[in-house]
Every structure is written in C-alpha cells, then in structure tokens.
C-alpha cells in the first residue's frame, strides 16, 4: 500500500507545485522518486519528528501542502503537541501519513506498533482521520487527502495488502463503502484487517449468516447514515479494527449509536485488547492471537449474535 501511496503522491506533485514532503529520515526505498524529481520540495529534517511537524506547518502556513511521512507512531505521538497546537489550531494544510498502521511491523515490537493513533488523532479538532483498507482505497484516499484543505491523518498500510474491493469504488471522505450486502448484521471495519473480515463473512455465509460488510475508511468525520442504516436494516453492528479497544472505530460507532438513540440487537467491538502488544510475530499471527484472524473474527461475530 505504501508503494501506491508514494506513486500517487508523485503523480499529483507533478501538477501541483504546492506539494512538499517533509521527512524525519524514514522512507528508504520508497521516497527516492519524490526526492529526485522535486529536490526543492523535499526535506529530510533528520531524526526529529517534532521539527518535522513544525517545519511542515510553517511550509503549509504559506499556502503550500506539506506531507509528513514516517512509520507507525513516529509522526503522531512524538510530535503530538506540534500536531495539536501548530497544525490543528492553525488549521494548516499538513498531511500526516503513517506507514504501517496497527501491528504491521509485527516482530519489530511494541515501539513500532501504531495502536492508539486513531483514538488520539480523532480527538483533535480540525483533523480528518482516514484509514484506507487496500490499494484501491489507498489511491482514492491519497487524492482525497490532497484535494482536502486542512489537517489530515492518513493511516497507510505497509506492503502486500490483498484487495478487498473487487472493482472500482466510489470513494468520498466521510462516506462508508459497502463491500458486500447482507441482512443479518453489519461488519464495519477500517483498514487492511478488512480482508480477515471478508473471509469471516464468507465462512458465516456458509453457515447461513448473511453479513453486510462495510469499509469505514473515514473515521472522522464518521458516516452516521451508514451506522443508522446498518442498525435499521441489519439489526446490529460489529466493528473490527487493528487498534486498541479504546477510542478507535468501535468507540466512534458506539458514540453515534448512543447519540442517535439507536438500539441495535447486537453490538460488539473487535479490536486489540488494552495491552502493550509484546508478542513476537508477524502481523497475521498477532491478529490471530487476539481473535482477529479469519476464524477468530467469525467466532466472535457468532457469539455476539448468540449463534
């Protein structure tokens, strides 16, 4: 997914001289085409994420689009106050891009997991939070991000993500995409974990449980209508995200359910537990350990539906 992000960014930068890239010495093997094509719009501030974000804000304050880019939680947590005070308060046109949302960097360990980012980013006024699930969405989300004027958090996957959408998509910020229709429950996911959700839906289909599968690629602003419709027409919602249980997609959906006085017959948040993930293993394996592999998700859905 990071490759398609960088490809689209490069294409857009060819026609938009406002686009600058500000890095903190991360991006080897991916960012070189941008660096070599636009050296006057490429900055590596060194291993200094606070300065990366401040510099990007200064560039953006002068009518430009500044993209900060790094892995996992580096461009969010280390420089959170710069994002809050500089970028969000000034509504600066800064795009914060992370590569490797969730536990993409599995065996690298806890320091390289981005598992609280959605909760933190969506708490910031003026911030859009976007979590594309496959290459199709990643391409569309990159365009949408660059077309949007203001702070934007883009939680990119890593590499080798499988396609979740089988054909062209109608991608609009704040509008969920239905991957598959179903009538017994709605599975709302964000990000590449959607492939496990899709597989779980396949398994349940064989057992006579029909699942609507929805990609909630924009977590802020959240698509209220999709949530209301899911409760009214499928009876319940299960959220699935590669993120801490607190504050992410599941919380955002639950907030809408409460605010809109909805009464779903089933509601469950499937997410990483509230722990510091210290298991050693690759992303797919870690997902399985926390009940977020294909079978784990299917089992939790059945349990939530009382089946």
């Amino acid at each position: 997914m990071r490759a398609v992000f960088n490809k689209v960014l490069l294409e857009r930068a060819k026609n938009d001289p406002r686009i600058h890239m500000v890095l903190a010495d991360i991006g080897y093997g991916e960012i070189e085409p941008f660096r070599d094509t636009f050296p006057e719009r490429y900055y590596n501030v060194g291993v200094a994420e606070q300065n990366m974000t401040g510099v990007a804000c200064g560039i953006a304050m002068e009518g430009n689009i500044a993209v900060t880019y790094s892995i996992a939680n580096f461009p969010t947590l280390r420089c959170l106050e710069q994002i809050r005070n500089d970028v969000c308060y000034h509504n600066a046109n800064v795009k914060i891009v992370i590569i490797g949302g969730g536990v993409s960097y599995g065996p690298l360990g806890m320091s390289h997991h981005s598992t609280e980012d959605i909760a933190i980013m969506r708490a910031l006024p003026n911030m859009v939070v976007c979590v594309p699930c496959d290459n199709n969405e990643a391409i569309a989300a990159t365009h949408a991000m660059l077309d949007y004027d203001g702070p934007f958090y883009y939680r990119c996957g890593y590499k080798g993500e499988k396609d979740i959408h089988s054909g062209p998509i109608d991608f609009k910020l704040g509008k969920a995409i239905t991957v598959r229709e179903g009538k017994d429950v709605t599975l709302m996911f964000a990000g590449p974990v959607g492939i496990n959700v899709l597989h779980a839906a396949d398994m349940l289909e064989k057992e006579g449980i029909s699942c609507r599968v929805v990609s909630m690629h924009t977590i802020k602003p959240i698509d209220k209508e999709a949530i209301i419709d899911a409760v009214k027409n499928t009876g319940g919602i299960i959220t699935i995200e590669e993120h801490n249980l607190s504050g992410g997609l599941g919380s955002a959906v639950a907030e809408v359910i409460c605010d809109e006085h909805l009464s779903p017959k089933a509601f469950k948040r499937i997410a990483l537990p509230d722990v510091n993930v210290s298991l050693i293993g690759h992303q797919a394996w870690i997902r399985e350990q926390y009940g977020m592999g294909d079978e784990g998700i299917a089992a939790q859905i059945k349990e939530a539906l009382g089946k």
């Binding site: 974000t53 200064g58 560039i59 304050m61």
Partner: peptide, 15 residues
C-alpha cells in the same frame, strides 16, 4: 514551537 514553524516559513519564502 516557534523556531520549527519559523524554519518552515523560511523554507517556504525561499521556495
């Protein structure tokens, strides 16, 4: 916060 943002503004002015 001031100097990092000012540094970005200086880059933008040069650009």
């Amino acid at each position: 916060h001031g100097l990092p943002v000012a540094t970005g503004m200086a880059i933008a002015a040069r650009y």
